[in-house]
């Protein structure tokens, strides 16, 4: 199925959880936060959050800034 991650369309497996996706993307889960369809998904819920077709994800981290 298709979802959008940080503005890019991506094909992912049906039934994938957010935690599984983060792992597939090789991101350090401690360093990121995820917004799904404009709502923050708390870290503790990543393992139970099953992604759905057309989900819009923003996956962010901290960078240098003033």
């Amino acid at each position: 199925m298709q979802i959008t991650i940080n503005g890019d369309e991506r094909q992912i497996d049906d039934g994938l959880t957010l935690a599984q996706l983060v792992s597939q993307l090789k991101m350090n889960p401690k360093f990121i936060a995820v917004e799904r369809n404009r709502e923050v998904v708390p870290r503790a819920e990543h393992v139970t959050c099953t992604l759905e077709e057309n989900d819009q994800l923003e996956i962010v981290t901290l960078v240098g800034g003033g």
Binding site: N6, D8, M27, A33, V60, T61, V63, G64
Partner: peptide, 8 residues
């Protein structure tokens, strides 16, 4: 710090 998209 700033908050930005994680690079894929």
């Amino acid at each position: 710090v700033a908050v930005r998209r994680e690079r894929l």
